[in-house]
C-alpha cells in the first residue's frame, strides 16, 4: 500500500491509497481522478497516461524500460521528468509519491 498524490492541472491535490501491484495509472482510473485517459489500458501503446514525476521522486522510482521513451515522444508536452503512469508499479517504497497530471493527454 502506498499513498499517492495526483495533482491535476487546476492545482487540486488528490491523495489516495493504492494497493501494491497496481500501477499509478490504475490507481487514478479506479478512483476517477480526471486527466489520465489510458486509452490502451496499460499496454504502453498510447501515451495518454502521461504524468510528470516530482523531481525528488524521479530517480527513486523504477527506471524506464525499453519502449517507454519512444512512446513519450508522442505524449502531449513531454518534459525531462515525464513518465507513463501505466509503467510505474506501486509498492511500499512509493509511499508519498507525487505526480502532476498534464493539461491534456493529446
Amino acid at each position: 500500500m502506498a499513498k499517492i498524490t495526483y495533482i491535476t492541472d487546476d492545482n487540486k491535490d488528490h491523495t489516495i491509497e493504492v494497493q501494491n501491484g497496481l500501477t499509478v495509472m490504475e490507481g487514478a482510473v479506479q478512483n476517477d481522478i480526471p486527466g489520465i485517459d489510458a486509452d490502451c489500458g496499460g499496454g504502453m501503446a498510447c501515451a495518454t497516461c502521461h504524468v510528470y514525476v516530482k523531481d525528488e521522486w524521479f530517480n527513486k522510482i523504477p527506471k524506464k524500460e525499453d519502449g517507454e521513451e519512444d512512446m513519450l515522444d508522442m505524449a502531449f508536452e513531454p518534459k525531462k521528468n515525464s513518465r507513463l503512469s501505466c509503467q510505474i508499479v506501486v509498492s511500499d517504497e512509493l509511499d508519498g509519491l507525487t505526480v502532476n497530471i498534464p493539461s491534456k493527454q493529446g
Binding site: D39, C46, T48, D73, M74, G106
Partner: peptide, 10 residues
C-alpha cells in the same frame, strides 16, 4: 511545419 507524432484515438 510538419508534425509526425503518431496517432491518438479520439
Amino acid at each position: 511545419v510538419l508534425g509526425f507524432f503518431g496517432l491518438i484515438m479520439q
